[in-house]
Computed example of a mutant assay.
Amino acid sequence: MPSEVALLESRAMRDEHQGRVEVLDKVKALVTLPDGIHLRTEDVARYFEIHRDAVHSVVKRHRDELKANGLITLKGSELQRFHMAVLATWDESYPQAGAQLRLYTRRTVLNIAMLLRDSDIARCVRTYLLDAEEEGGRRQGYASLDRRVTKVEANLDTVGHALQELGPVINGISVRLDRLDRRLDATNQVVGAMSNRLCDLSDDMRRMERRMDSRMDDVAHQLRELQRGQRRKRR
């Protein structure tokens, strides 16, 4: 099972859990705006029981990742339309429209829960995610094992029949291997005899070389004696 630190450090691991938004309400009730979709920065801060500056800090460090998971910033006419359509129908008092409004979805909030280090609520969310993953992995593993055992049991008869049919084939292969072993032994004996013969030939060649060297020395000596005799005759 991945650790909480791995979840904090790895975006790829966070992406694997990004669809598990149901864990937010299991840890603590998440209060959205009247549209049932969006939250403001102060709503996110209230959920995690932290200061809104801490939320801004997470957004600043991971803006692209959070945008990919629903973070938007409304300005101008879009902001006015949102106020008219959503906030104006809200019984709770709300600040008047400013220059911009940052909105979060449940996916964004879950993303922040996997990034916040100094929030007990965020830690609970991460723990719930990891525990649920481990439990799901165990269930999946048990189910997979059950399927494999069932499959093996269902095929036992087929395996037994196949082994019976393979018996004569295996025996035939064993006989052929024995024959090959005998032929290999015979070949090894021939190769050994040839090796010994080559060694003998090598000894014979060395003896012939020594005899040739001795003979050449004798011929050279006779030539030198003949040359000396011819020089004495000229004198």
Rank of each mutant, 00 (worst) to 15 (best):
A113C: 02
E92W: 03
E65C: 05
R107F: 13
V27Q: 00
H17P: 06
L116S: 03
T108S: 08
D181Q: 00
R215M: 12
V21F: 02
E22W: 04
Y47F: 00
L87Q: 00
R234F: 11
S214W: 08
T187P: 04
Q96T: 11
R176K: 01
V31G: 04
E135Q: 12
G137N: 11
E49H: 10
V190C: 12
V5L: 12
I173W: 09
G76E: 04
S174Q: 14
L184Q: 04
R139S: 14
V175C: 09
G19Y: 06
M84Y: 07
Q227D: 15
E92S: 05
R224M: 03
S174V: 09
R232V: 15
K60V: 05
L74K: 05
I121S: 08
R182D: 02
D181E: 02
A6F: 12
V175R: 14
M13G: 03
Q80L: 08
R126E: 00
M114W: 04
A88P: 02
M208G: 06
R179M: 01
D203G: 11
E153Y: 08
H17G: 01
R211M: 09
G36T: 03
L180R: 00
R210D: 15
V125H: 02
A88K: 12
M84N: 06
Y94R: 09
R20S: 03
R210Q: 15
V152D: 09
G172I: 11
R11F: 12
R106L: 13
M84S: 10
S3V: 03
E16H: 07
V125A: 00
I37V: 14
V109T: 00
H38K: 02
L79Q: 07
K28P: 02
N171G: 15
R106S: 10
H62L: 04
T105P: 04
D91G: 13
R231I: 13
K26Y: 07
R207P: 01
D181M: 03
L116D: 01
N69S: 03
D131Y: 07
V59C: 07
N196C: 03
R102D: 10
A97C: 04
Q222V: 06
H161Y: 02
M114H: 02
I173V: 13
Y128S: 10
A97Q: 09
V191A: 12
R148P: 09
D185Y: 08
A186Q: 15
E133A: 14
G160W: 06
H56G: 13
L198C: 05
E209F: 08
A29W: 09
D118G: 08
S174P: 00
R232P: 07
M216W: 08
V190N: 14
D146Q: 15
E209H: 10
S202N: 12
G229P: 08
L110M: 03
S57E: 10
Q140D: 15
N188P: 05
G192F: 07
V55D: 01
S195C: 01
D118T: 10
M194G: 09
D118W: 05
H17N: 07
M216K: 12
T32Q: 12
H62T: 07
